[in-house]
Design a protein around this nucleic acid. Structure first.
Lengths: 338, 338
DNA sequence: CCTGCCCCACAACCCGTGGTTGTGGCCTGC
DNA sequence: GCAGGCCACAACCACGGGTTGTGGGGCAGG
């Protein structure tokens, strides 16, 4: 479908005349006629009735009208999403099925007026570079990278220590456990596809495996969540890790189990990074939202009870001292003023 | 923006290779390259990074990605809205700012899976013809037309008697009245723009004016709700009629008043008409929704309290006997089984 | 390290879509 | 009945977007 034809259709309807629409679009009346005729031919229905006074919408044209507007709005938003300056707030998340993504959804709900685009960068180095160049506005990362610390012009706000939970099918040996220790996972196969080597997420799982003698397979491409859940649901030996802050849904028949891991609780320390120079108005709102969400217990409760299988891990882990993080993520950083 | 280019961009991202996308789209690899390059040139940013292994999204490409999908979804819905057979449920309303439009909104909220298109036909004759031809699926109309009655293959369901309210600015002589009788409106100028002569809505106001000696000006084109409200808010003598079921919002400064009209209460008797042959699955859901909404007091309350200026007219009018309708709308019709 | 392969971009060419001008038919209102 | 709008059809033309052919650049394997 030709968006110019759609735009022309709207122009004709709003002015009521082909010729007037032509003037607005700076083309000839004949071109307007051709465009509308082509659109009608493509759709197979008549959109406008031509009278001696001009044109008005047929029933099909009336039904098409709001969709035509929606189409052009979508086009405008798509263009705006990549326009430098005054574009949507662009936030980098380490993964789509971790707490930051869920937090962004709640942020979007409470601030629907702020356009939001979510991207995923390769690693923290790329994120910091993108923050400094203004390509992105904020990034959820672990505060410290291996062997280095943040530049001075990057702000950081600790947001959430997200516990890792085990996700198994009903036939798994640990399916009925109320909780497991990391040490008990030794020998079990844990499959976490879609982890790109070299990223901090890969480093996290490598450290976790080394610390407790786990077998974590990060091989294989990520075909999406559904195939992963299908595989885990059917397998008696394969399990996977999910963040406690994820909002997973699966078919009833899968009968999956989310099992908290305690003693110690492996957590991933999400922080928000941003450039101190960035003037984007949505950025302040995001930081305020996260600061509030981090302290309000209601949000933490909503987080842990995500998929209908309530767990107490999220709250207990952040309050309890017995947590585990990789060495390179252990030291906390300054917490700047908002 | 060329939707084919957007589609090509998505194909490249999903397959990861220009050549593979070319195969899927049945064009050459060079054409894919050209399309993406043209899109990038139009947007002014690079969307894909080309590597020896294929292509992957840049940050801008990632941000653009969901908008690209939304664009194509909007296109698909637009096409589906006019495709004969299996198209969205298409409902005719007599006006956008009357109770039926509000009822359709509540219906859409409770059945978001049912695609809905709203149109406005010229008059009841056109509506019945469109119902019988399958061009529309349902129509909110007054049951009886002047001098005729419904064909046998058209079903009818009385939905709501909607009281008419007076809308005035703060300087109007009746601005402080808690309620007025129709007779008291004689001599006041009442302006209802956008009424097309020959329609049943025009006949309704003509009958109302004749019955009580009112001055109702239905002249002039409809420039939309905002100009009407602007005019009424500033005028000490001009008022307008609105349906009690409308959900009007206006700027705080306007300080408009919705004044119930009682003694008798002019109501418009909305019924739903549909073709008994129509198999559209959404139609049954709509009829059930309306049947439930007509009996549940919660909906009636939500209706009358629409714009933040609570009125008791909707409920009292439907329960009280002292209502007025035009002679041609007075007799009730059969109420068929759902 | 060189070579071959794979993948994408550039160049030249060519057809068809979509613009223009010119004109005619139809309805309406004076 | 005639004049004035308004839209559709026809002929023409230009350029966008397709094709084929070719070149450059990065990995991988010998």
């Amino acid at each position: 479908m030709d968006l110019e034809a759609v735009r022309t259709f709207l122009a004709v309807l709003e002015s009521g005349r082909f010729g007037q629409a032509a003037d607005e679009l700076s083309i000839t009346q004949q071109a307007v006629s051709k465009r509308v005729a082509a659109l009608e031919k493509e759709l197979g229905v008549r959109l406008l009735t031509r009278t001696a006074h001009g044109a008005e919408a047929t029933i099909d044209g009336q039904a098409f009208l709001p969709h035509a507007r929606a189409l052009l709005h979508a086009e405008a938003r798509a263009i705006a999403s990549v326009r430098p300056g005054s574009r949507a707030l662009r936030v980098d998340v380490i993964g789509r099925r971790l707490a930051p993504a869920a937090l962004l959804r709640t942020f979007h709900r409470s601030h629907p007026e702020i356009e939001l685009d979510v991207v995923t960068l390769f690693d923290a180095d790329a994120a910091v570079a993108a923050l400094r160049s203004g390509t992105i506005d904020a990034s959820f990362r672990a505060v410290t990278m291996p062997g280095r610390h943040l530049p001075e012009d990057i702000g950081a706000l600790p947001v959430l220590d997200e516990p890792i939970e085990l996700l198994t099918g009903p036939a798994h040996a640990l399916a009925s456990a109320r909780a497991v220790t990391p040490a008990r996972l030794a020998g079990h196969r844990i499959w976490v596809p879609g982890i790109v080597s070299g990223t901090e997420w890969a480093a996290y799982y490598a450290d976790l495996a080394a610390e407790f003698g786990l077998t974590i397979e990060v091989t294989g491409p990520d075909f999406g969540t559904e195939p992963l859940l299908d595989t885990v649901a059917d397998s008696p030996e394969l399990a996977t890790f999910v963040g406690a802050g994820t909002r997973l849904v699966w078919p009833e028949a899968h009968d999956l189990r989310r099992i908290p891991v305690h003693g110690p609780t492996p957590v991933y320390p999400h922080s928000l990074l941003w450039s101190l120079d960035n003037p984007h108005p949505g950025l302040l709102a995001l930081r305020e939202h996260l600061a509030a969400a981090g302290t309000e217990p209601s949000d933490a409760a909503a987080l842990s009870g995500a998929s209908g299988t309530p767990t107490a891990s999220a709250t207990s882990a952040t309050s309890g001292p017995d947590i585990w993080t990789p060495s390179w993520a252990r030291q906390r950083t300054r917490r700047p003023a908002l």
